[in-house]
Amino acid sequence: MKITDQEVLHVAGLSRLKLDEHELKRFLRELNAIVDYMDMLAQIDTAGVPETVHATMLTRALRQDIPERSQERAAALANAPSQREGKIVVPRVIE
């Protein structure tokens, strides 16, 4: 096992997730399976193969700087659990 309990809990913390004992075991298993798969890929000899970050061959997908219609504000706020004066209300974040 490459990934430890501690690492799973750390990543969960960064994602604001609380895991119970059962979930922790499940993620430990799944994350390790992913890492094992990556290890397998890492065994392939890629010397001389250029780095690829995308499967398409596009290299210049650009748009012009021309304004388009934004969505209605109601749509922007539709998923917000709480709103006030057009703004989304969230629990206080203190810097």
Binding site: I66, P67, E68, S70, A76, L77, G86
Partner: peptide, 19 residues
């Protein structure tokens, strides 16, 4: 406009109207 969409990048618009 914004960097990845056509919404206006201007400041001072009504809150959440340029999304």
């Amino acid at each position: 406009t914004k960097i990845f969409c056509g919404c206006s990048a201007r400041a001072g618009l009504a809150p959440n109207s340029s999304t």
